[in-house]
Every structure is written in structure tokens, then in C-alpha cells.
């Protein structure tokens, strides 16, 4: 990936961290998804302002024993999937968030 990609959590979702996993429900069709530990790290960092590459290097690679290339490839697949279900927004520019952006639990 040469271009920067920005990711932001959709406001049309319900979500909660449950231990080291995250439950995410699409408010449009009530489909429930669970994100594992690594996906949760990416999910929580998806603020629309931080490029995906930076999330992967600073959050994922800093915590897990994985090379940036492999992590970024996996992250790309993950965010594409989440975007397909309307849970994440993807853009090559920073994504402005509404005032009522869903806040995550610590």
C-alpha cells in the first residue's frame, strides 16, 4: 500500500469490549460480530484521524510479535471486511467524526 488509508468506526453500530474481545452490532441489520484481541486494538484506534499504517506499527506491532508487512496485510483484510458490513468507514483522507462519535469503554 503506498497511499494512506484512514479508518473510522461507523456511528450506526453498537459495541462493547468484553474482556479482550469486542462485540459489534450493526444497527442497520442487527448482525452481531466479535472482534478478537488484535482486531480490537485496530477497532479502538480507528478514530478517522490516524492512518491505518500508523495504527498497525504503533499499536499492533508494538504489542504483538508480528512484522509490519504481515500485520498491515491482515489489517487491510480486516478493515475491508468490516467496511463491507458498514461497521467501519474507509477513506484516503482523514474522516471527520460527528460530535456524537461513539466513545469506547476503556
Amino acid at each position: 500500500m503506498s497511499e494512506k488509508r484512514y479508518v473510522a468506526r461507523s456511528t450506526a453500530i453498537a459495541s462493547r469490549v468484553l474482556g479482550d474481545e469486542t462485540m459489534v452490532m450493526s444497527a442497520t441489520d442487527s448482525t452481531l460480530f466479535t472482534l478478537d484481541e488484535v482486531a480490537t486494538v485496530i477497532w479502538e484506534a480507528a478514530d478517522g484521524a490516524t492512518p491505518l499504517e500508523e495504527i498497525v506499527t504503533k499499536k499492533v506491532c508494538a504489542q504483538y510479535d508480528i512484522t509490519p508487512e504481515v500485520a498491515l496485510k491482515d489489517a487491510e483484510v480486516l478493515v475491508e471486511q468490516l467496511a463491507k458490513h458498514g461497521l467501519l468507514l474507509l477513506s484516503d483522507k482523514p474522516i471527520a467524526q460527528p460530535a456524537s462519535l461513539p466513545r469506547e469503554t476503556p
Binding site: 452490532m25 444497527a27 462519535l101 466513545r103 469506547e104
Partner: peptide, 11 residues
């Protein structure tokens, strides 16, 4: 309701 949705509850 708006506040609850901002805290991402499934309502």
C-alpha cells in the same frame, strides 16, 4: 437516547 447511543449501547 442520544447520549446512550454515543456510548454505543445496543438499544
Amino acid at each position: 437516547l442520544e447520549y446512550a447511543r454515543a456510548r454505543t449501547f445496543c438499544i
